[in-house]
Design a protein around this nucleic acid. Sequence first.
DNA 1: GCTTTACCTTCCCCTTGGGGGAGAGTTTAT
DNA 2: ATAAACTCTCCCCCAAGGGGAAGGTAAAGC
Lengths: 129, 129
Amino acid sequence: MNIGMAAKRSGLTVKTVRYYANIGMVVPAQDGRTGYRDYSEDDVARLQFIGKARRFDFSIDECRELLSLYDDQDRSSSEVKALTLEKIKAIDAKLAELQSLRDQLNFLAKTCHGDNRPDCPILDALKGG
Amino acid sequence: MNIGMAAKRSGLTVKTVRYYANIGMVVPAQDGRTGYRDYSEDDVARLQFIGKARRFDFSIDECRELLSLYDDQDRSSSEVKALTLEKIKAIDAKLAELQSLRDQLNFLAKTCHGDNRPDCPILDALKGG
DNA sequence: GCTTTACCTTCCCCTTGGGGGAGAGTTTAT
DNA sequence: ATAAACTCTCCCCCAAGGGGAAGGTAAAGC
């Protein structure tokens, strides 16, 4: 099938699907005369797989790893689990960082009276050491 | 002072300080003969201000806004507060998104036995509709 | 058969926030 | 005098594509 259909079926944009072909993630057959890409059902399945993994915040390189595990019939589930646990750890770190940031900003916003007077504790906090 | 000192005093890299000069955020005086940038104390204060705001997850454009409020002696603190509240809202949204992601991944990791058998619920989840 | 419209292709520039390094000039220390 | 450290500009690089131009192709309407 053509790229438009493959995009629709995988829930990705044509640009994205073309990008994945360019970087060697999902390389479809190609018509020699027209140059049109020709996606198989398996290609679409792989695109869907990548789409989901991306939504789970896996990077392109991590998707590549997952994909090779997905392709490897002899893989052990422990490898996939390890990758997933690592990703969870990274998300936890990001969560903690954002939470701390949120708390600090919230504190500043609370102490700022937010009226027409020019003095502002938020700016003071950014200014001060 | 030279850029190296300004960078050290503001806790930024030379590259970053030069970048801020290029995009017009902190444009120092410049020696006509050598072309060396010449940072004043005020420039350093502004660099420090930006450094902190960046650590608070404000984008470059948001830093620009904050900086112009910082420069404006007649500003009202409400403007700064509004910007900060918006940023908090954005952080909250990101937090919720990451939390949901974390929960889903955690569920998958829990159901995955993680041994040498090739079947893996995580990959199945990525594969399935 | 012809034309319009919808797809497809490659190519190049744009984004965020800088990092890395080349090649050349300057200043400082030895 | 020379070596080290610093500075300058210029250019390419990262992630993960998006936007759009210029041109070829296919399907559908008349």
